Amino acid sequence: MILARVSAEQLSQKHQAKLKLQLVCLDDEILAWFREQVHLAGGGNYQALINDALREYIQQHHEPLGETWNLTFRERL
């Protein structure tokens, strides 16, 4: 995964048309890990990093996302 500095202005320009405000519940340790990665890289946007990580995962796993979700939910039960 490549960490890049993204200013608020760049994020706004790059993603403004695609961004939607969504409520996503993530474990505290997940958020802390992404924030730490951004800090270690010297700055950036942890939310953009989460999006990049999810996008990379989806691209590497060619199974339909519905199957991935079903497996994840079954594991949590």
Rank of each mutant, 00 (worst) to 15 (best):
L3H: 14
A4R: 15
R5C: 14
A8D: 15
A8L: 12
A8T: 13
E9A: 08
E9Q: 13
E9K: 09
E9T: 10
E9S: 08
Q10R: 10
Q10I: 06
Q10H: 12
L11C: 04
A17E: 12
A17K: 11
K18L: 15
K18D: 15
K18V: 14
L19K: 15
L19A: 14
L19P: 08
L19T: 14
K20H: 11
K20N: 12
L21N: 10
Q22E: 06
Q22T: 04
L23Q: 09
L23G: 04
L23P: 04
L23V: 09
L23M: 06
V24F: 09
V24W: 07
V24M: 12
V24P: 07
C25P: 03
C25R: 06
C25Y: 04
L26Q: 11
L26P: 03
D28F: 06
E29Y: 09
I30V: 12
I30D: 05
L31S: 06
L31G: 03
A32F: 13
A32L: 10
W33F: 02
R35A: 01
R35C: 02
E36R: 05
E36C: 01
E36F: 01
H39T: 04
L40P: 01
L40A: 06
A41I: 03
A41R: 08
G42W: 00
G42D: 02
G42R: 01
G42F: 02
G43S: 01
G44D: 00
G44N: 00
N45C: 00
N45V: 00
N45Y: 00
Y46T: 00
Q47M: 08
Q47D: 05
A48W: 01
A48Q: 04
A48F: 02
I50Q: 10
N51L: 06
N51G: 09
N51P: 01
D52P: 00
D52G: 01
A53H: 10
A53F: 10
L54M: 07
L54K: 06
E56G: 05
E56M: 04
Y57P: 04
I58W: 07
Q59W: 08
Q59C: 05
Q60P: 00
Q60M: 03
Q60K: 04
H61F: 11
H61T: 07
H61Q: 12
H62V: 10
H62N: 13
H62A: 11
E63M: 10
P64I: 02
L65E: 03
L65T: 06
E67S: 11
T68L: 08
T68P: 02
T68F: 05
T68V: 11
W69A: 10
W69H: 12
N70H: 07
N70S: 11
N70D: 08
N70K: 11
L71Q: 05
L71S: 07
T72N: 11
R74T: 08
E75G: 13
R76C: 14
L77C: 14
L77M: 14
